[in-house]
Design a protein around this nucleic acid. Sequence first.
DNA 1: GTTTGTGAAAAAGTTCACAGCG
DNA 2: CGCTGTGAACTTTTTCACAAAC
Lengths: 206, 206
Amino acid sequence: MEKIDIPKKAIYRLSIYHRCLQRLHDNGQETVSSTALAKAAGVKPAQLRKDLAYFGQFGTRGLGYPVDTLASMIRDLLGRERLQPVVLVGAGNLGSALLHYQGFQKEGFEVVCAFDADPEGAVRRGVAIPVKSDQEIESFVHSEGVKLAILCVPAGFAQAVANRLVAAGIQGILNFSPVVLEVPEEVVVNNVDLALELEHLSFFVR
Amino acid sequence: MEKIDIPKKAIYRLSIYHRCLQRLHDNGQETVSSTALAKAAGVKPAQLRKDLAYFGQFGTRGLGYPVDTLASMIRDLLGRERLQPVVLVGAGNLGSALLHYQGFQKEGFEVVCAFDADPEGAVRRGVAIPVKSDQEIESFVHSEGVKLAILCVPAGFAQAVANRLVAAGIQGILNFSPVVLEVPEEVVVNNVDLALELEHLSFFVR
DNA sequence: GTTTGTGAAAAAGTTCACAGCG
DNA sequence: CGCTGTGAACTTTTTCACAAAC
């Protein structure tokens, strides 16, 4: 296993590069220079090259990077060569909203099941995938071997639900609850706090 | 105006501290030490103190910080002492989803109007606030003096709509489209890319 | 001639550790 | 004595600049 440490932000940028490469592929481009790709991704060329260099050598000097090969190698790095199943817990306002959103599916994630304390309510909100009672989290996650969860329960329940998800075998949580979760260090939490992002903008707008 | 430069991340943390202070306030606490507040916010005590120090001196040595005063001073810094109006453009899947989400309102932002190429469609999706045709963006934003916009149009339209928003006087954009927007430097863009956040988790989950 | 890969330099951000104040 | 405020040390991340490869 690699020991050199890779900036966490570099991983984010990898996803961005991948998006740009997809677009280039759709346009039929076969190679791209670090300058061009960096511009599309909104970063400096040197940074793009350094980011890629953390993982190996993919370019040809004097020519650039092969679009398809690089895209596929990034997918591989991000663990996205095969479809990842995901569960969503908390199909309330935001949760059922996210279930209507096509973006996850479009990027190759399949939300296989949702859980809620009141599954009937979620169905009433027009959720299209199966909604089970939150009692069934453990058995489902365990038997299906799901590794990723999207957490959208109210703040007061977030930590308790997170504990159960971790116990069931979840290794990564995309957390929409405005709460700092405590989890074992082998579990990764990614916080997305929508109100906080608006608040952040508000600081710069005078 | 202050000239020392404040880490961008410190601004985010300010919002988190504010959340924690609200909770402390609700519990009737009157003062809090950097150690306690830092723990609640998930950071190191020294960082909390340094973050606050960028903006002035608010604590009492030997005692800690006054919960209410500090909360109010952070609100003031973030431009959140008064209600900020916000418009939302693109009331499709994600857009109408966000309009159902109560989190913005709960944190004191009022989404005053939504715009869409097909306002009827949005109304059919059960959006509760007025939805106008996107033709009316300019006149509304300009006459109401709105400064913040939430952008959820499909990727292909994002840049064009952003240009119009900026021209109409918008100064901050919360961008949900998976596109790197180009805007004048006085305009702040905050990207929230939901699929990218899931992808990021996927890297760490093996 | 063009463009990558990469050490070395610079900048940014975090943590330490302690003086100074209540 | 406890806890803040802060310069200094340290760590991480970004940028530069150029040799090596095509």
